[in-house]
Design a protein around this nucleic acid. Structure first.
Lengths: 193, 193
DNA sequence: TCCCCCAATGTTAGTCACTAACATTCTTGT
DNA sequence: ACAAGAATGTTAGTGACTAACATTGGGGGA
C-alpha cells in the first residue's frame, strides 16, 4: 500500500475512534492495530499522537498577502487586511473532517494547548511578512495578536452550530483588531488604507 | 522538611541543572536524586516536568483592572488599558530566577508550546472581565490578542539584554494593539478613555 | 519473464514522563 | 510520650516515543 494511502487510512480510523471514545482513552497501539499496522508505522506517518488531530499545513498565501499590503497603516492593521485578502482568494477546506478535528481539539485540554503551539510557525511567517515595513518587535506583537484572534475564531467555529461558516467567524475576529467602517462592513479591506 | 522548602529546593536544583545541560537532557529522576528525594516527591510538588519551569500563578489584579475600565472603548482597548493600570499598581517580580525560567522556556521548543498553553487560564479570565461590557465573542478575541501580545513581550524580554525592563516591553506591546498619543506616550492610560 | 532494489513495514528492546497502591518515617499538638 | 496526620519512599505498571535491525512486496530494467 502506498504511503499516502496508509497515512490517510490511519487518520480516518484514528479520528473515528477518538471521536467516539475520547482522545485520552485511545492509545496509539489501538489505532495502529485497528488500521492493520504496527505502532511504528503510525509514528512514521505522524510524528506525535497529537499530530493525528492537529496536523495543519501552513498556507504561504497568507504571508504573501500580508507582505503585499500597502504601507501607511500599522502592523496590526496590515496583518488583518492581508488575512482578509487571503480569505477572499483562497478557498477554505471547510470539510467535515476538519470540523471533527477542530471539535476534538477544542474539547481536549492537552490538545487545545497543542493548537496554540501549532500556530508558532504561522506566527513567525506573519511576523516576517510584516517586518518589511515595521520594526521587528512591533511585527512580532502584531503577528501574535492576529494569530491569537484567528485561533479563537477557529475554535469557536469548531464548537459552534454546524451551519456557521468559518470565514464569517474569521472576518468577525479580524474586525475586533482592525475595525472596518460599520456602514460598509465587508468588501472594504482591499480598497481602504 | 516542610513541603514548601522541599518544593523550592527541587526547583532551585532543577533549574540549575536544566540551565546548564538543557531541558531535554535532564530527566526528572536525575533532578529528584540531585535534590535528595525520589521521583514521586517531585511529582507531588510539580504536576509535570514542564511546571518546574513554567509554573506561574495568575494574578487576579489584571482581570479586576480590566473589569474596572470605563465603557466607551472597544474590548481590545479596554483590555490593553486595564493591563496598563495593573502594571502600574502591581510590582513585577523581575527576579533573576524568573528571567532564567523565561530564558529556558524561550529556548526550548516543547516549553515554548507549553507557555502558550499556560496562558489559557489568564485568557479566559480576561475574556470574562471584558464580557460585562462587550459581546462574548468579541471579548474572547480581544483577550486572545492581548495575551498573545503580552506573551511575545515576555519571551522577548527573557531572551533580550539583561538591563531591559520587563515593564517597558509589556507597555510597548500594548501600544501596538491600542496606540496611545505619540506626543505623550506614557502616563496616559489612566486618564484617557 | 525474471530479478533486484528500495520503499514501506515489522520486531524487539529500550527510555522517560507519569500514576496507583501501599509502606514507612517524621512531626506536631496534647 | 504518644497517637494522628503529613511528607516521603518503594514498587510495579502504562503509554508515548525512539533506535537498530530484519523483512516484505511491488515496479523497473535486463
Amino acid at each position: 500500500m502506498t504511503a499516502a494511502r496508509t497515512k490517510a487510512h490511519l487518520q480516518r480510523v484514528g479520528l473515528d475512534m477518538i471521536a467516539e471514545a475520547g482522545y485520552e482513552a485511545v492509545t496509539v497501539e489501538q489505532i495502529a492495530r485497528a488500521a492493520g499496522v504496527s505502532h511504528m508505522t503510525f509514528f512514521r506517518h505522524f510524528p506525535t499522537k497529537q499530530s493525528l488531530v492537529l496536523e495543519d499545513p501552513f498556507d504561504p498565501a497568507i504571508a504573501a498577502a500580508i507582505a503585499a499590503q500597502p504601507p501607511g497603516a500599522s502592523a496590526l492593521a496590515r496583518a488583518c487586511r492581508g488575512v482578509r485578502v487571503a480569505l477572499d482568494a483562497v478557498s477554505l477546506p471547510e470539510e467535515d473532517q476538519v470540523r471533527i478535528r477542530v471539535r476534538i481539539g477544542a474539547s481536549t485540554p492537552s490538545l487545545t494547548a497543542g493548537i496554540w503551539a501549532n500556530t508558532l510557525a504561522t506566527q513567525v511567517a506573519i511576523a516576517d511578512a510584516l517586518s518589511t515595513l515595521s520594526p521587528p518587535y512591533e511585527s512580532r506583537i502584531a503577528a501574535a495578536a492576529t494569530i491569537g484572534a484567528l485561533t479563537v475564531a477557529v475554535l469557536e467555529w469548531g464548537t459552534g452550530p454546524a451551519d456557521r461558516r468559518l470565514k464569517d467567524n474569521l472576518l468577525e475576529a479580524l474586525n475586533v483588531l482592525d475595525p472596518l467602517d460599520p456602514l460598509d462592513p465587508l468588501h472594504q479591506s482591499e480598497h481602504s488604507r
